[in-house]
Amino acid sequence: MPLSTQSQADDEQYVLVASLDNARNLSNILKAITFKDHAIFSATPNGLKVTVEDSKCLQANAFIQAEIFQEFTIRDDLVGFQVNLTVLLDCLNIFGGSTVPGVSTALRMCYKGYGYPLTLFLEEGGVVTVCKINTQEPEEPIDFEFCSTDVTNKVILLSESLKEAFSELDMTSEVLQITMSPSQPYFRLSTFGNSGNAHYDYPKDSDMMELFKCTKTQTNRYKMSLLKPSTKALALSCKVSVRTDSRGFLSLQYLVRNDDGQICFVEYYCCPDQEVEEE
């Protein structure tokens, strides 16, 4: 099938066309938010935002800016649809997701509009695969109302130091407790498991601590099962910003560098594991 001519001719009809020389730049970052099947895609002229939610308590967003794509054409201010993320990832890795340098899968992602499938053209070594994934009615992502003006405490850490802690977390603990404080213990992760409790303390002057801005002592607990998926984002990232607002809501922002050295962001919001205190 003369794919190229066909896709050229069809280009007019698409509301969204995005091309990538290396599909891994998309699949990697999507992996960081894969903990539920349904992903809400919202495309604006600035780029693509993919949202995954769990239990109305956890939300993960991956941002892929328009500049990351070799081509990013959008005919509306906002194009939204929902697809099965697992299926999408399977398609993106349809050639096996080889990590051999110099071998990469090229991607052209097209969407005609409401009611149409998301069409992926994938090419590797002269072989082209066309995947059509049915789209679903886009849901409205939850607004966590996490406002940067309401941030009480904020630290930025090199991911390396948190990776170790997260890989060692006592999973028999139901919650992860995060303490942030302008005084001792500054930044503390605690677990309360079957065999006792464990604390990981990061001093504010550690060379792993890039920024330390805590105004008030705050101790909040978050469900371990909710935070566990964020480990995937942590593993990919080089820096992480941990913020809490006055309600105890947690925002984790991960700075991810892709294969080509470009920067993308992944963000997790999580509700605290107790009654929200009065605002």
Binding site: A165, N197, A198, D205, M208
Partner: peptide
């Protein structure tokens, strides 16, 4: 009734395990 293991790690990271 706790046995405390404290690991003093690089970069000032302190890991404390209080084990029963």
């Amino acid at each position: 009734n706790r046995l405390t293991f404290t690991l003093h790690c690089k970069h000032g990271l302190l890991k404390t395990h209080n084990l029963s």
